[in-house]
Design a protein around this nucleic acid. Structure first.
Lengths: 215, 215
DNA sequence: ACAAGTAAGTGAGCATGCTCATTTTATTTC
DNA sequence: GAAATAAAATGAGCATGCTCACTTACTTGT
């Protein structure tokens, strides 16, 4: 069984390699599951023993690509700039790793990047969860304690919007995407700070007010 | 030919009606294009003379659903609250119209809701473009002049993030979504205001600084 | 009134993502 | 080492989104 386990890991890896090559060469639509299976020298049925859907393969590629960046920033041995600047560096590092998949990210938006998708999913959710965990670690490191679920969701909106924009960014070196990231984070972080201030001054929470009659 | 034109419009409408019924009854995946064609009493080929893809049908349903809200707020005869409150009411009105399609919105995220998708698309882009145009009108009405492309893109990130969240919102009356909307808009509008202030005080534009070496 | 031309309709058929009953391979038991 | 058992691989086949060569229906010119 040990031999089998190693073989399985090798097959898993081979599938991902072949998929990445074909994806880069022909794009997502033109790359059929038969192609991938053939390239990995397995049957189609075997392919689906390793990945539940074609999109899951891309999701896994994306998750593995950014895993490095997550680990690097998770160790916390990065020089401590401001929260905003470190967050910027973190996201930018993730983008660099994701570059080969740039144009194929929209196809995983629905599953891997969607918020609140039914839990239990293997590789899809890992991208979202591990990214948000890394953001939380960065926040805590800079004294921004316990981001609320709403704050995390807003961050996720901005992040997925950035990825979608990036996928279609035609500017020469994707500098438009970096500008968008810069402004998004500036807005997000200063909003976080203003909320911290509010809670210190203990202003009455008025957020219930003007959506009560819009339900 | 006039008779034909009317017939076409009727067929177009019948397709949408049938699609909406089947979608509500069985969901997007379980509703086949053969089902829709059969329900509309046309051949499958005819269906694809009217809509380029299955998703385009949903996109059209969504676009038509929100058209009413767009027109209402476009007329500008709405009592003038603050920009933030009117924007909230605008988006909330859109959500109410979209309610029957709530769970099916993710499938059009890739196409209809994606930013910068190659122009020329019929119904998909119309949702994005007309929504942003309505937001621009609201902004101008409240003295927020000429939202920059970046600001619009950030708004779109927040809006699509909201729709994705809404599609999976399990809270009894989707109050979580409204809370998310409230916070998103509060952050967005106060960020807009702070940018207005900045440009008045003519601070040197520092936005190029810290992403220059992250490309 | 008829022929020619044009636009819309049609559905058999294709491509492809995914399944599942069957076969093959690996491991354990005696 | 043979039989039994478990696990993994297999690929024919299914479902379905979409196409396209052909048919049908209607308009126009004479």
């Amino acid at each position: 069984m040990r031999v089998t386990a190693e073989t399985q890991a090798a097959t898993h890896e081979r599938i991902l390699e072949v998929a990445q090559e074909l994806l880069a060469a022909k794009g997502f639509e033109a790359t059929t599951t038969r192609d991938i299976a053939h390239g990995a020298e397995i049957a189609v049925g075997t392919l689906f023993n390793y990945f539940t859907t074609k999109e899951a393969i891309v999701a896994t590629l994306a998750a593995e690509a950014v895993a490095g960046a997550h680990r690097k920033f998770g160790r916390g041995n990065f020089e401590a700039d401001s929260f905003e600047e470190e967050l910027f560096a973190f996201v930018a590092a993730g983008l660099r790793k994701l570059k080969p998949l740039r144009q194929h990210l929209p196809v995983v938006l629905e599953t891997a990047l969607s918020p609140l998708v039914l839990a239990g999913e293997d590789d899809g959710q890992s991208l979202r969860v591990s990214h948000l965990e890394a953001v939380l670690r960065l926040a805590n490191k800079h004294g921004v304690k316990d981001l609320s679920p709403v704050a995390l969701q807003i961050y996720w909106s901005l992040y997925t919007g950035l990825l979608l924009f990036w996928a279609n960014d035609k500017s020469p070196r994707q500098e438009d995407t970096l500008a968008l990231l810069d402004h998004s984070l500036e807005m997000f972080v200063s909003w976080l700070n203003s909320r911290l201030d509010d809670s210190l001054i203990k202003l009455p929470n008025k957020k219930e007010l003007h959506y009560a009659n819009h339900c």
